[in-house]
């Protein structure tokens, strides 16, 4: 199992379909026989990122690489960008509208969750250009 590359378009117009890419990645990792606790961490981190893209950036692209020792996720959008990444990383800080809160999201837990469930996480963002979230999860125990 080495060097499998997957890519998905995340549709930004349809909140109902948010999470489809994460679901497919989850299935694929199961087929590859990846440990279930690792799959869960990948699925949650990617799902949070996917939801964020749909809420804030009208969708984007999700790239997943399954390497022999790690899983690398990169979620790239051309949305409004994040002006203050440190603030955005704070638990409870959210700029999601009330309509999104009514759907059960926007509690300001997305980015902190991604950090919690991954071994490495990096946000690159430019206001007006977009945001890229890169995450790595190692296949062996931390």
């Amino acid at each position: 199992m080495s060097g499998i590359k997957l890519s998905y378009r995340v549709d930004g117009d349809n909140f109902s379909s948010a999470g489809e890419a994460s679901e497919q990645v989850k299935m694929r990792l199961k087929q590859l026989g990846v440990d279930s606790s690792i799959i869960r961490r990948v699925a949650i981190a990617m799902y949070e990122a996917e939801i964020n893209m749909v809420i804030h950036a009208k969708g984007g692209m999700a790239y997943v690489e399954v390497e022999p020792d790690r899983i690398v996720l990169s979620l790239q959008d051309e949305g409004p960008g994040i002006a203050d990444i440190e603030l955005a990383m704070k638990e409870g800080y959210s700029t999601a509208p009330d309509t999104i809160r009514a759907l059960g999201f926007g509690a300001g837990m997305g980015l902190p969750n991604m950090k919690k469930y991954t071994d490495e996480m990096k946000i690159t963002s430019e206001v007006g250009k977009g945001t890229t979230v890169d995450m790595i999860i190692y296949l062996s125990a931390k």
Partner: peptide
Amino acid sequence: LTGLTNPQVIRTAEMVD
């Protein structure tokens, strides 16, 4: 247990098994 009904409830549940 939840009182929320939208498709993301099912997806969220699926992500956490």
